[in-house]
Design a protein around this nucleic acid. Sequence first.
DNA 1: CTGAAAGCGCTAACAA
DNA 2: TTGTTAGCGCTTTCAG
Lengths: 321, 321
Amino acid sequence: MSSIRDLARGLGVSIGTVSRALNGRPDVNAATRARILAAAEAQGYSANPAARSLRKGSTNIVGFLFAPPEANSPLADVFFMDVVQGVQGALCDESLELVVLPCPTDDSPEAYVRRLVSRRFFDALIVMGGRDTLNAELVRSGVPVVGLAGSGGLSALVDFDHQATFADAITRLVNLGHTRVAAAPACPGRPVNAARVQHWLTPSTTEAEGRALGVELLSLDPLPTALIVENDAVAAGIYAALRTSGREPGRDLAVISCRSTARGRNLQPTPASYTYDPALIGAALARTVLGLLSGQPADGSVALAVGGVFVEGSSAGRPPV
Amino acid sequence: MSSIRDLARGLGVSIGTVSRALNGRPDVNAATRARILAAAEAQGYSANPAARSLRKGSTNIVGFLFAPPEANSPLADVFFMDVVQGVQGALCDESLELVVLPCPTDDSPEAYVRRLVSRRFFDALIVMGGRDTLNAELVRSGVPVVGLAGSGGLSALVDFDHQATFADAITRLVNLGHTRVAAAPACPGRPVNAARVQHWLTPSTTEAEGRALGVELLSLDPLPTALIVENDAVAAGIYAALRTSGREPGRDLAVISCRSTARGRNLQPTPASYTYDPALIGAALARTVLGLLSGQPADGSVALAVGGVFVEGSSAGRPPV
DNA sequence: CTGAAAGCGCTAACAA
DNA sequence: TTGTTAGCGCTTTCAG
């Protein structure tokens, strides 16, 4: 409704001064600034974002692309909107507007995103999943694009802190008294306390691989008393393999899953596992965006790692005496 | 990147002509228009939305407010993002941009929305649920606000077509051979075939009310053979009341619920009920927004009613012989 | 049918 | 420390 002109006229100052005061520029008399801020507040004035964007060439908007989740995505059970709320919480302090962009399902997502980009609708984009080819194209267009975990070709990434989680799992098992610990993590690298692990088995991420892993495990003699796996699906596979051989998971073998998924919901014993707080993921995404926007290099590397939270389960007790 | 100037210069026409051609104005030579459209397409030109907004005073953006759902809301089990997709599908044809606005949880939703409105961030807003006081304030500010069902104080509403659903339920029961049909719908008004209903019981919406309804029902002599209730929660209450008196729902009394909810998920027999397609709800919301934007009166009335879809269940068979 | 030009509200460079 | 002013890219009136 009211423009910067009205505000300036009412106060008997120039619009330039009002603009400087409102934007927190240092070269404004303290008293003048106070008067201006008070008047703006009183009149509920707020700068026209279209005019500002036109002038500055940037929109102050961060987009969060919502592409309907693929069923087999490892992210499918991370609640999208919870992550969004996490981003929002961290972004609104910086007076950046966060908007969720719903990708039309029938139309091609590529066309949609391209249109948005060519219109310079946002200053930065957050994606979860998404196709690598599209990502690469976006990055080439100059928009900072940040994503989570697996996504390729982005400006920067937020990832799960696999190392820390893995190290925590080892520590827990050792503290429980386990001396023969096996691990089949799918993430590359070794945690600091890797020496506590006696057996390194084939990296596995699916339930089928978990069953194969069980066979591999059962060929060991003596049998380990504890096993660390990538996720609940692998745990389910291990459970099946153990039971086929007459053994009971939890009792005969302690199992810790590094990533809680929907598959673990109805598993008995309930897998001791790790979840990643959507709010924390969101906050990390927001901080990464902020970094990129303030000039941090966009080399596609992992900018921030989010720590997991341990979830008690009945699958990881003390070793049999 | 490229502006309307570049485009015009490259073609040897004025920017005014380019603008008119691109906006589909009638007063442009057909050949000129074709040349301009082709060049725009080739260069991937797309008008700067900030400049356009500044000039036109409108943003071409429709906002969809995402407020974390209240647990007891009757809408809680309608999947928000599915509705959004429905809106998107119907809106992108009109070259309106749909964005989901995530209400910060910690900050007051009121402050957030007010800020957005005062910045004229969108031309229209869609809300689901939301507080009546805020809604009224929005409408007063002149932005068209449309919502679903219960929301009060809006510019226009989309509602479930209770009448049609109710009528369909009656028809189904009569066709199954029921002659003593009772109904306890919570929605006002009577369907066209209301005469087929023998008993009108107390309107009920909760499980507790459902149990009370069961008592009321059981006092009838002879007992009706079929009952139409508002939703699955009421059905659950009815089930409990029937069983207390030694009767079995489905066998001794056919039950149809007018609204499928999460409560019915684990109910036995599974309630025959009605769902409302999120995509259809979304499309209706979009059409309502479009209507408002093209000048339809914003009197807060129900602009569109969405029909329910019957979901087979084991709770509504033929009457006992 | 087309061109010229005003001006939407704002920021920033420049002048005072 | 403040005022003045150009101009961001577009739509739209007004002349021609």
